[in-house]
Amino acid sequence: MRIVHRSPAVIAAACLVMFSPVISEAAHASSTALPSVVATARGAHCELKAAGSCRGIALRGQDLRNAQLSRIDLRGADLRGANLIGANLSGALLANAKLRGAKLSSANLSAASLQGADLSKADLHLADLRAANLHGAILASTNLSRANLGMPRRTPLLRMRMDAPAGCSATGGVVDCAGADLSGADLQDANLANANLASTNLTSANLTGANLSGANLAGANASGSNLTNAVLIGANVATTNLTNAILTGQDGMVLPASPVNFAACDKNSCGQAPNAGQMSTSWSPPSVNLSSPPVTEFVVICRNVSKPDQSAGPAGLATSFVFQGLQSLNNYSCYAYAVNAVGTGQSSPTSVGQAT
């Protein structure tokens, strides 16, 4: 059924949907979208028999701006592309609702139940999501910029919920998005302090200016994300994938520590390479710092002690490197350093070795 109207609809606790414009004869002939249509002199309205329940109702693309939907039962409803800007959905039951592409900016969704709802590509800019339950909701490419997720700065982390791989839970004002798909989401200036984002997909997400202090990002994939001016003080990023992420002005993530146990070998130590002009070097990874993103590369530099030549060895993530083509029996002073998404870390103490 196609409904054309100009003013916002109002759905009350008994699920009465009022539409002021006239519904066409074709719409009267097909009542699959809404249970019943009653014509009046002023226009038409759709009334559901089950008091308080609009389960499965079809309102795709409807204009419901500023609608009063507090505590309504819209479980499984089709609201794809609906205009719900400024709507009051506080305490509403929206489990498994289809909200893909819906306009929910400035909507009140406080204490709403959104378990399993499809919010992909929905606009939740400035929406109130305090105490909302987003467990299992699909948030791919969802715009949550400046949304109020109700996260106090000192709230402890929840346990990881690996049984919710596609959504988040905001129950009790604490956000748990462990394993969630937030790829491409607009989270600019979002308050995600102390949030659990372990194993979350944040690829290409906009986290500009976001507060991620104390957040758990262990195992998260933030490749290609924009973290310009983001606050990450105390955040766990030790195993976070930040490949091609933009980190300009970020506060909190640190450079890697220097490799430890670095050694350049000579013919009498550490398995020296057998061929002339070769020299082996080895080291151990730096100690783990939760505020330091994972190492992406080790680099070894060796300088001839008596001649002005230098060799560099990009070793990738290996913890050893064999130099080739050095001056046979010449001594070389060497050191190594680690690189991560933030930049180049401090170099190790030097070690002198001799080429074969």
Score class of each variant (00 low, 15 high):
83 N>R: 04
150 G>Y: 11
7 S>C: 01
89 L>E: 08
260 V>W: 00
284 S>C: 01
55 R>L: 02
148 N>R: 06
88 N>C: 03
245 A>C: 01
143 N>G: 06
59 L>A: 05
321 F>C: 04
118 D>C: 01
129 L>M: 07
273 A>R: 07
340 N>V: 11
87 A>N: 06
125 H>P: 00
56 G>S: 09
71 R>M: 08
330 N>I: 04
223 S>K: 03
217 L>H: 05
269 S>F: 02
354 Q>P: 01
31 S>G: 12
74 L>W: 03
245 A>F: 00
191 N>R: 08
272 Q>Y: 06
286 P>H: 03
300 V>T: 09
220 A>T: 14
262 F>S: 05
332 Y>S: 09
200 T>P: 03
35 P>S: 12
34 L>I: 15
122 A>K: 05
295 V>A: 07
250 Q>L: 05
145 S>L: 01
261 N>I: 05
261 N>D: 13
137 A>C: 02
320 S>P: 05
26 A>G: 15
90 S>E: 12
5 H>Q: 13
315 A>H: 02
110 S>K: 06
152 P>L: 05
228 T>P: 01
76 G>S: 04
195 A>P: 05
324 Q>V: 14
93 L>G: 12
261 N>L: 08
242 L>E: 10
103 K>A: 10
235 A>G: 06
14 A>S: 13
257 A>I: 08
269 S>Q: 09
33 A>C: 03
88 N>Y: 02
89 L>H: 08
213 S>K: 05
60 R>I: 12
221 N>W: 01
276 A>M: 08
324 Q>E: 14
41 A>T: 15
187 L>S: 11
43 G>E: 08
58 A>N: 14
339 V>N: 00
241 N>W: 01
279 M>L: 15
218 A>G: 12
231 V>I: 13
204 S>L: 11
280 S>W: 05
290 L>S: 13
10 V>E: 08
343 G>F: 01
75 R>L: 02
252 G>F: 07
162 M>Q: 11
146 R>F: 12
117 A>T: 11
311 S>L: 06
217 L>R: 00
38 V>C: 00
167 G>Q: 04
250 Q>M: 13
180 A>M: 04
282 S>T: 14
145 S>T: 14
274 P>A: 15
347 S>Q: 13
335 Y>T: 10
125 H>G: 04
303 R>P: 00
253 M>G: 11
20 S>K: 09
193 A>E: 10
283 W>N: 02
45 H>C: 03
88 N>T: 14
116 G>W: 01
12 A>Q: 11
131 A>L: 09
37 V>E: 02
159 R>Y: 08
340 N>E: 08
147 A>Q: 03
102 A>E: 02
83 N>P: 00
222 A>G: 13
282 S>P: 03
52 G>N: 09
84 L>Q: 03
114 L>M: 06
253 M>R: 10
204 S>Y: 12
66 N>M: 02
264 A>V: 12
207 L>N: 10
340 N>F: 06
283 W>H: 04
294 P>H: 03
98 K>Y: 07
7 S>Y: 08
306 S>K: 03
268 N>G: 11
198 A>V: 12
44 A>H: 11
133 N>H: 09
225 S>N: 05
110 S>Q: 13
49 K>E: 15
148 N>F: 10
